[in-house]
């Protein structure tokens, strides 16, 4: 297995940093992108995540991990957080946290599920639900770096209204040369969609992905069941397991 070094050298210690919310936007009725200003942020690679720590007035604190939604951009770090109704942290982040508020985060974390803009191999991104977040960071990084690597995204969402970044993906699919985007809807499709709602299957991966011969780098992110199914499909289609990188959501998976 490859040694996955963290860019710029791993800092000796991942320190907690103050992160000030500078803007937010709602991606769906239950998901919000939070843009933080983090002084001295060391930079990151698309696909990496951060740990967020919230502390209550009596000193109780808890931590969660969130994928970074944007490529490295100075001191700006954007997360897209899905509201989990009975969650401990996501209701605070998506409903209470206001511009100017400061929380703590540390990172970047994870040197495996990353795409490096210097990589020229075709890329296949398959995201389920909020699993699209780190994949979006890769799509944005591709454009920001002027990469010509061929990208395909297959995005499985429950309904059209549940898609994150819908407008931006529509624009990028048109303007980012070499980026294709296809969708699968599991509960409700848009008007006039040629297929009924269904789970992502072999045909979707076959049609929306790359042939194994192209040796694409595959990134699969989403809830556990989704990732298990997609990774099995990729292997069955003949993709090399070593080129299939996965990130599974744990207990808060939808």
């Amino acid at each position: 297995m490859a040694r996955a070094a963290v860019p710029g050298g791993l800092s000796p210690r991942l320190v907690w940093r103050a992160a000030r919310l500078v803007e937010f936007r709602d991606e769906t009725p239950s998901a919000r992108t939070l843009v933080f200003d983090v002084p001295d942020w060391p930079g990151h690679l698309p696909g990496q995540h951060v740990d967020v720590r919230l502390t209550a007035e009596d000193g109780y604190s808890t931590e969660r991990s969130y994928s970074i939604a944007t490529p490295a951009d100075g001191t700006r770090v954007a997360l897209t957080v899905q509201l989990v109704q009975d969650g401990e942290v996501s209701p605070y982040l998506t409903q209470t946290l206001s511009v100017g508020d400061v929380i703590e985060l540390r990172g970047p974390v994870g040197g495996w599920f990353v795409w490096r803009p210097a990589d020229t191999a075709p890329v296949l991104l398959i995201g389920g639900g909020s699993g699209v977040v780190p994949l979006m960071a890769m799509i944005r990084a591709r454009r920001a770096a002027g990469s010509k690597a061929l990208f395909r995204l297959i995005y499985s969402a429950r309904t059209p209204e549940d898609r994150y970044y819908a407008d931006e993906l529509r624009t990028r699919a048109r303007d980012d040369f070499g980026l294709d985007v296809s969708y699968v809807y599991t509960r409700k499709t848009p008007e006039g969609w040629p297929l009924p709602p269904r789970r992502l299957g072999v045909a979707d991966v076959n049609n929306g992905g790359w042939p194994p011969d192209f040796q694409p780098a595959c990134f699969v992110c989403g809830p556990t069941g989704f990732v298990e199914a997609v990774a099995d499909i990729l292997i069955a289609l003949g993709h090399d397991a070593r080129r299939v990188k996965t990130e599974r959501f744990g207990p808060s998976g939808t």
């Binding site: 320190v15 907690w16 940093r17 103050a18 720590r53 919230l54 502390t55 209550a56 007035e57 000193g59 109780y60 604190s61 808890t62 401990e88 605070y92 209470t96 946290l97 508020d101 400061v102 929380i103 703590e104």
Partner: peptide, 13 residues
């Protein structure tokens, strides 16, 4: 850095 307090955050302990 020791715990920046988030006003209104209670947690679930």
């Amino acid at each position: 850095m020791g715990g920046i307090v988030s006003p209104g955050f209670r947690g679930r302990r």
